[in-house]
Design a protein around this nucleic acid. Sequence first.
DNA 1: AAGAGGTCCAACCGCCGGACA
DNA 2: GTGTCCGGCGGTTGGACCTCT
Length: 254
Amino acid sequence: MVRAPCCDKMGLKKGPWTPEEDQILISYIQKHGHDNWRALPKQAGLLRCGKSCRLRWINYLRPDIKRGNFTLEEEETIIRLHQMLGNRWSAIAAKLSGRTDNDIKNVWHTHLKRRLKQYQTKPDNIKKNPKIKPKIQSEPSIVCQSSDEIPSSSSEASSITDTSDHREFDNIKAANMVDSSECFPDIDESFWSDSLSIPPLNFEAVSDEYQPQIPSFPIDHIVDARQSLDDDSMEFWYDVFINAGGDGDFIVQF
DNA sequence: AAGAGGTCCAACCGCCGGACA
DNA sequence: GTGTCCGGCGGTTGGACCTCT
């Protein structure tokens, strides 16, 4: 089956939006809302496809959009949420009011990712710049949850078997998540030298990009997790991980 | 002053899943 | 059950802007 294009692109404008187009879109949505993005540009008199209108509204024109630089707190939140959720920008954005998934994606790729890389190769830098705390770990991200943290949904969480279920799980998780630091306890400076350089579980072969690095939770938790996984379940989660493209979330129940 | 290279971000693209006929 | 529409998502990119030499 070949999907029909989202809209007939013939004669439709692409590229940057003009202030006039913005104004037309804003006043139309204020008047009529945006029930049907596909029909909206035609009704509003815009030579754009519905997708383009939606994106412009969501990422730029919405009245509740927060512009300007990300604060330190926001950056830390992004880092921590990314650690837990992976590249699920919309889920991360949902936790940062006024920021869009596009904004977060951009700030991650332009600032945070590079900064993380820097600190992971030179952990000593952590002392020089307090912006990054030593609980950071890059992908593959592991969502650690103690079973009593999420009493109402642990069974739902454990039933997640593929990436398509992650969105549902996002909601469950988001509803229960108060502070990710509960999940990732603070560690002291000695952790850098004392703790393991073993990657969590046995996934070092999964991604070339993955390097043994800063564990995001104490070693005894990792050991416990390893002990609790028999070969079959290890193989199962390995498959899940591979199917998720090597950087999907990986759930460990303690 | 200028141009080469790097950075940033708005916008596009393709894919996916839910809803519905 | 199947096909189609539509909204939403993450990955990617083009070009404007900035910095360095």
